[in-house]
Write a protein that binds this DNA or RNA. Sequence first.
DNA 1: CTGTTAGCGCGTTCAT
DNA 2: ATGAACGCGCTAACAG
Lengths: 338, 338
Amino acid sequence: MEEKMSLRDLAEKLNVSTSTISRVINDKPGVGDKTRQRVIEALQIYNITSNSSARSLKTSKTGNIALISKRREDKYITSDHHHPFGPFIESELRKYGYHTIAMSLGDEEMENAGKLLMIKENRVDGFIINGPSIPAKFIMALKNTGLPVVLFGNQMTQVDIDSIVYHDRSGAYKATKHLIEHGHKNILFLSGPRGWYTCDERKTGYTEALIESGLQERITYMTDTTIESGKTFFKESIENVYPEITAVICTNDATAIGVLDEVRCLGLKVPDDIAVIGFDDIPWASLSYPPLTTIHVFIEEMGKITVNRIIDLLKNPELHPITTFAATELVIRKSCGC
Amino acid sequence: MEEKMSLRDLAEKLNVSTSTISRVINDKPGVGDKTRQRVIEALQIYNITSNSSARSLKTSKTGNIALISKRREDKYITSDHHHPFGPFIESELRKYGYHTIAMSLGDEEMENAGKLLMIKENRVDGFIINGPSIPAKFIMALKNTGLPVVLFGNQMTQVDIDSIVYHDRSGAYKATKHLIEHGHKNILFLSGPRGWYTCDERKTGYTEALIESGLQERITYMTDTTIESGKTFFKESIENVYPEITAVICTNDATAIGVLDEVRCLGLKVPDDIAVIGFDDIPWASLSYPPLTTIHVFIEEMGKITVNRIIDLLKNPELHPITTFAATELVIRKSCGC
DNA sequence: CTGTTAGCGCGTTCAT
DNA sequence: ATGAACGCGCTAACAG
C-alpha cells in the first residue's frame, strides 16, 4: 500500500530539479555523468517511473495500442480467435513499453467508429486489427484518426494500408496440388464470404492449381467461417450442388473441423469418402478426428513482424504502407488420405 | 484527420467557462437547465469527450482495468484460455466506460510485480485475474497496490480476496456420481498441481462421491493441466500406477481431450475400455471424438458477475471481500458411455 | 550541465 | 448559476 513517489518528491530528496530527473528517465543528453548515475540509482531504489497520465498529457502519447478483433458469440468459433495471437502481440508490444487495449467489437460498434470512447478520448497511439472479417468502413475510420494502423490477416484492395498476411494464395495452391496429385478430380473449395481478403486469396490459389491441371472449380461461399458454417454449407453442397466431390479444401480449420463432423453425421468417412484439408493449423487441428491435414502458418513470427511494423510507424508516421506476405507450410496428417 | 477539440475550445465557442462544460460532462449540479442543454447538444454535435490523460491526471483514475492471465506457449492449450472469457469481460467492462488492458504474464514477470510498468506507471484502476495458475505471491503484490482485485476461477485460502468461482466441488461430485451410477468402481481423477484452487476443489468433490459409495480414490497430480499433460500423466497412470481403472475424471477439458487421444494411442477405446469426463465444456468439447461428456459452466454470466463486482469495488473500495460460487451442469455426450 | 518557467487539458475550489 | 484561478505531474523551451 506504499504511496507512489512523484518525480518532484525524488527531486527534492536528491536536491536536483525535476527536469534533470526527466532527462535521465527519457535518456536525454544534458546531465552530468555523476548526477545521472545518482538519479538512476535513486530511481531504482524507489522503483519510480513517471506517471503515465501526466506524461501522456504532455506528450500526447498514451503508450497504448488497441488490438481489435471481431466480437463472437459463445460457441461461435473461428480460427482467428484460436491462435494465441493476442498474447503474442501483447507480450511483444510490452517489450517496447507499450500496453495492449483489447477490444472485440460487434458490427454495430464498428458502424460508428467515432463513438468509440477509445477514439474520442485519445486512449491509444495506434491500432492492430486482427482478421479478415472487419468492415472496410471501420478500418478507414480508424485510419482517418491519423494514427498508425496495421492489418493482420487482412488487406485492403482499394487503399494502401500496412498489412501482414499469410501467403494465402500459395498456401491454398499447395493444398490443392496435393489433392490433385493424389488423384482427386472433384474438389470443393469452401470459402468465406466474397470480399474477405484471405478467403478470396485462398480461393485464387485453389483455382490456379485446378486450372493448371485442367480441372473444374467448385466453390461454395459461406456466410461465415465457423464450425457451424462448415457443417451447414458442406451438407448443402454435397447434397444439392456438388454430389460428385471427393475432397474439400476449407478456407480455415474451424470450417474443416465442422466438415469433419458433418461427414460423420452423413455416415461417410474421412478420408476414404471425402478428403479434407484445412488452413491455419490451429492447435486443435492435430487433435481432431482424424487429425487434420492443413496449412501451417507461423503465427508467432508474424506477431513479431506485426509489432515491429507498428513500432516503426509510431516512430515515423511518414512511412509508406507495405504489405508483408509470410510463407506457409503444408502439414500432412490423416484427413487427406496419405 | 480532424483535430480534436478540447473542452476549452468548446467553451469559447459557446461563451461559457470550461468549468460549466466539465460540470455537464460529469453530471454535476450547478448548471442552469438551458445552459446544460446547450452544452449537451454541442458535445454531441462535435462528438467531444474530455481527454482521458488530463482527466486521469486530475482524478487519479485511468478508466483501465487489467485482465491478467498466465502466458502460454504456442501449442500449449489449457481450458482457461479457450473460453472466450477475455471478450466477455472486455465488452462488459466497456459498458461501464472502462477499457481492458490485457496482459499474459510468464512466471518470471509475476515474480517481480513491482517492476511491471502497468503498476509503476499507474496505468490501471483494478485487476481481474483469470485462472488458478497464478502465484499467490503475485496476487498479493497486486492487492498491495491498494487497487481492487477480483479473482476469476481461483480463490485464496489464506487471505480474503474477492473471487468468482464455479462450484467446482459439486460439479466434480456430479460427474463422479454419474460414473458410479453406471457401474464404475475404479475411477481415476487427473488433477492439476496441489494448491491450484479449482483442482483441489474438484478433487474434493470427486472424493466425496467416492466415499459416499465406499469406493477408493485414485488421484494423479499433474504438473499442468494441458492436452500434453493429460496424455503424459494418463499413460503413466494406467501403465504403472492404476492399471485397473475403467474411468477417468479430468480436472479440465484440455486434459480430457489429451486423454481421449492417448487412449487411442494405447489401442484402447473410449468409452468401452475407458470412460472419460472433462470439466468446463469449452467449445471444442462437443467436437472431440468421441464428443466429450463434461461439466458445463456458464462463462458469460460469470463474466458479468466478475465485472459487476469490480465495478462495485471501484465505486466503493471499502467493501469487504466476497466469494461467489456459480452452479454447473453435467452435459452428457458420448465419452462417458451412456 | 543544470534550474526555472510555462503549459498540456482537465476538475475543483472559491469567488461572484 | 457561473467564472476565475489553481494545480494534478510531467516535458520542453529557455536561461544561465
